[in-house]
């Protein structure tokens, strides 16, 4: 068993796909009949194993998600996305798990860039 798809709530599917492809560097890889009577887009970034499925808004079965993306260097990716026009609602902050920066996509899903750090000295 493996984790393959994460449904992403989209109010406006086109705006959402623009955001993910142009700002976050995702590519549309296929379509999938995830919800009856509707084709959903499947998006994937090069370095991720998991694909995102854009799901339309008028379905009760779709909820807003909170997605944690793992990064090697949070500040670098934060800066990269910020220059691409992603709006971060807070500066990167330090958590017990490491450094994290959070932003919202146009559909209101919460995405977190997390750089995990180990603070225990061996």
């Amino acid at each position: 068993m493996k984790l393959k798809y994460i449904p992403v709530f989209a109010e406006d599917v086109d705006a959402q796909i623009d955001f993910y492809t142009q700002k976050l560097g995702f590519n549309v890889i296929s379509n999938i009949g995830f919800i009856e009577g509707e084709e959903s887009m499947v998006l994937q970034a090069n370095n991720l194993d998991v694909a995102f499925v854009m799901a339309g808004s008028n379905r009760d079965s779709v909820y807003k998600s909170c997605i944690i993306l793992n990064t090697e260097d949070c500040l670098k990716d934060y800066h990269l996305y910020k220059t691409a026009g992603v709006f971060f609602y807070a500066a990167p902050r330090y958590l017990p798990a490491g450094l994290a920066a959070e932003f919202l996509d146009p559909g209101g899903n919460r995405l977190i860039l997390l750089e995990e750090r180990s603070y225990t000295e061996i």
Binding site: D73, L75, Y119
Partner: peptide
């Protein structure tokens, strides 16, 4: 150690790669 070390290492790596933003 800790965050200081991670950040300085990242900075150094970034500069070592010849980047300059």
């Amino acid at each position: 150690n800790g965050d200081m070390m991670y950040n300085v290492y990242h900075l150094k790596q970034y500069l070592d790669n010849g980047m300059h933003d």
